[in-house]
Design a protein around this nucleic acid. Structure first.
Length: 743
DNA sequence: GTAGGGTTAG
């Protein structure tokens, strides 16, 4: 009895019970009800098992079965149901209602639905409305589970419904929600229109169905019809309608609804206000009105978990991670959803480690992660390139029964791809029980990032053939793929089809990819024409694409122009300086290279770790610190010396020239260590026996000379090498690279 | 039997 406070009614009742020398079956049944209603299944079970068989009756069993069912123990309820029949007790209508409710909690209850249906019929309770409602409900729930063929079960539910001698409101509503959950809104609507009584619950369910399908107009028509038919509008009606506005970004309409509520609802109950305010927070936040959202939140007399979660995800959606962290810390309570939002937010912002830490903390605090939480954690592994961690999560996911989850599956496609195992990503894509646009986009991107541009384009075409409509992200990925495969004409056609065929207005990032495509293939006048005719003022992505193209082809004047625009827009961005200096290096203007580096130093711009290199006419030039006392410098020298020797011996590179260049001392360590690391890997690979496939998971920013080295090694040693380079991968084989040598 | 808070792809 420790779990109850000493003054609680159950405690007192139980004490009284203990004092009765021989409590009868009615007392026992009552106490089982009381314990299980307060969530203490153990106490209920204790009384149950101490009751001799001779005393028991059907009502007594029913109490215990209901107890299991109400405490989400479906298996317990079904097992006891079987025990009951074995012990010779006859289930009645209440028994069936309870056990059918319990069935819906069990994962694979498809066959059991039908068995139970037969038993109901045989037991003679097949005319009892509550039993039949439970039967319909369990069929409907079963039909909504993803692994089940829903139509046949819905037909079964419909049959039960049609043959019911007496239908009540519940029967109708259950059927309607059944159709809604299976995305058959027309059938649901037909049912609703066939109901004589205008029941608010059913109408609300119907509106919610429309909202979830994005059918805003239909939702609002229902709403207006409810008003004209004078059906009671309640918190469900309004939260649904507000969420419709939020999803469609209709702030004006949302405000009208808000005003209507204030005028028409008189003095609302606290419960009504809470629900509506929660919906309003999201409405304002999704429509970019952070101030209004926060004002509502701050003025709320009572907040619940939903309010806090709405504020949390509001901050996350506008990218204010620090504020989100603060809210997360301040929250009076959290649930799985809270954790999921935070884990995913961190992953999305590249904070993979923090995200994974939170994922394990979540479990330590006793929360069982849902598939969305897994998806967030798996994304963190993709960010970190942590293959082993990702594989473990994959295994745990399967163990938790989420292996058919779309979001988790989609995140795993990306995780495997970004960890270098393209084959695993692909086989996952092929074996997933169902895929959606996100899965296709993920797989197309994976191929593109691994340098398989032609295959990515092929997969995109296949997606179109299967009747799936591309979105703006599909175009970003397919355009990138065209870039890497050098498919200029195709890329341009895809770009044109974006608005021409699919009515999607290209964004700046799409234009940037188009310019990238044109510049890479040397079509500078076309690229310039596109920039001049842009429907908006060109921003950093556009100029960066242009500068990158100028770097490859050594188009100095245009490159300088692009760099100047970039300096105005993002003065402290190191990438501009690197591109600019490499552009000069391409044409051998070393003095200008030095000037750019000086400029960078004068402006206090920090360069990200990497190395400077350039490949001109098959000659490898490497910048090195003029400091031969530095041990790293000596190591890099030695590596290059040997590598150059080997390469020349095989006639791979006719000449290797090292250009010494001064470098900032704070850049020395990182630049040199990454460089020597890559060369060390290259040498390690050379020593390996023929016939091995090597994957380098450590993120090595691939530069021109190590790219050459890897190509050389793949040819000489004769095997495949996969190397990670940021988000992308290079596959080296037979002296060629999957990236199409766009270096 | 209905609602308000979430995820995955660039």
């Amino acid at each position: 009895m420790d779990v109850y406070s000493k003054s609680s009614k159950i405690y007192l009742a139980h004490q009284l019970f203990d004092e009765i020398p021989q409590p009868d079956i009615v007392a026992r049944t009552t106490l089982i009800h009381a314990h299980s209603a307060s969530g203490n299944l153990k106490m209920a079970r204790d009384i149950f098992s101490k009751t001799p068989l001779s005393m028991r009756d059907t009502v007594f069993y029913n109490a215990m079965i209901t107890g299991y069912s109400h405490n989400d123990d479906g298996y317990g309820a079904v097992a006891l149901f079987n025990d009951m029949r074995r012990d010779g007790f006859r289930p009645d209508g209440f028994t069936f209602t309870s056990v059918l409710g319990a069935l819906a909690l069990i994962a694979d209850y498809e066959r059991q639905c039908q068995q139970m249906h037969c038993m109901v019929v045989k037991s003679g309770t097949g005319f009892v409305t509550s039993v039949l409602n439970a039967l319909i409900s369990v069929y409907v729930k079963c039909a909504s589970s993803p692994s089940v063929l829903s139509t046949s079960l819905l037909i079964s539910a419909r049959k039960v419904f049609d043959e019911m001698p007496q239908k009540d409101e519940l029967s109708w509503t259950t059927m309607i929600t059944g159709y809604i959950r299976n995305d058959d809104l027309d059938a649901a609507r037909e049912f609703l229109d066939g109901m004589c009584e205008k029941l608010g619950v059913a109408w609300n369910a119907m509106i919610s169905g429309y909202v979830h399908q994005g059918l805003i107009q239909e939702a609002f028509e229902m709403f207006k019809k409810m008003q004209s038919l004078e059906i009671q509008l309640d918190k469900f009606t309004f939260t649904n309608v507000i969420s419709a506005c939020a999803n469609a970004g209709l702030i004006q309409l949302g405000k009208q609804v808000h005003g209507y509520i204030l005028r028409a609802m008189g003095k609302p109950t606290p419960d009504f206000s809470l629900s509506v305010n929660n919906a309003l927070i999201t409405l304002y936040w999704k429509c970019g009105k952070a101030g209004e959202a926060l004002e509502i939140f701050n003025k709320m007399p009572v907040r619940d978990l939903v309010s806090w979660n709405a504020i949390l995800s509001g901050y996350v959606n506008v990218g204010q991670i620090d504020e989100a962290r603060t809210i997360f810390g301040e929250m009076p309570e959290r649930n799985v959803l809270t954790w999921t939002v935070m884990i995913s937010a961190l992953a999305q912002n590249g904070l993979g480690e923090e995200s994974l830490k939170l994922f394990s903390q979540m479990r330590l605090e006793g929360f069982e992660p849902c598939d969305y939480a897994f998806a967030g954690a798996i994304t963190s592994c993709a960010v970190l390139g942590a293959l082993e961690n990702g594989r473990q999560l994959h295994a745990q996911l399967v163990r938790s029964g989420f292996d058919s989850s779309l979001s988790a599956g989609n995140s795993m496609i990306t995780m495997y791809a970004r960890c270098g195992v393209l084959e695993a990503a692909h086989s996952l894509f092929l074996t997933m029980p169902c895929v959606d646009l996100v899965s296709w986009n993920a797989m197309i991107a994976a191929l593109g990032q691994h340098g398989y541009g032609a295959q990515a384009v092929e997969l995109y075409e296949q997606m179109l053939k299967e009747g799936i409509l591309p979105d703006r992200i599909s175009f970003l990925t397919v355009l990138s793929a065209c870039n890497h495969a050098g498919l200029v004409k195709e890329g341009h056609q895809y770009f044109d089809s974006m608005y021409g065929v699919y009515g999607i207005t290209p964004g700046e990032d799409h234009y940037a990819r188009l310019i990238d495509l044109l510049c890479r293939s040397g079509k500078f006048s076309q690229a310039k024409a596109v920039i001049d005719s842009l429907p908006f003022k060109p921003g950093a992505p556009i100029w960066e694409a242009l500068l990158a193209g100028c770097r490859i082809h050594g188009i100095i004047d245009l490159g300088i122009e692009a760099a100047e625009r970039l300096f105005e827009l993002i003065p402290q961005h190191d990438g501009t300086y690197v591109l600019l200096s490499n552009m000069y290096a391409t044409v051998g203007r070393w003095n200008e290279v030095a000037e750019v580096r000086k400029l960078m130093r004068d402006r206090g711009v920090k360069k990200e770790p990497g190395c400077s290199w350039i490949d001109v006419e098959n000659k490898v030039h490497v910048f090195l610190v003029d400091d031969t006392l530095h041990p790293e410098v000596q190591a890099v020298y030695n590596y290059l010396e040997q590598l150059g020797l080997e390469m020349r011996k095989l006639g791979y590179v006719p000449d290797t020239k090292f250009v010494l260049h001064d470098m900032e001392s704070d850049q020395k360590e990182s630049v040199l260590s990454t460089h020597s690391e890559k060369l060390a890997v290259a040498f390690g690979l050379m020593k390996l026996p023929r016939g091995t496939t090597v994957r380098v998971f450590k993120n090595l920013r691939i530069c021109g000379d190590c790219h050459n080295s890897f190509k050389f090694i793949s040819e000489v040693v004769g095997r495949e090498i996969v190397v990670r380079d940021g988000k992308r991968f290079h596959h080296f084989k037979d002296g060629k690279c999957s990236c199409g040598d766009y270096w």
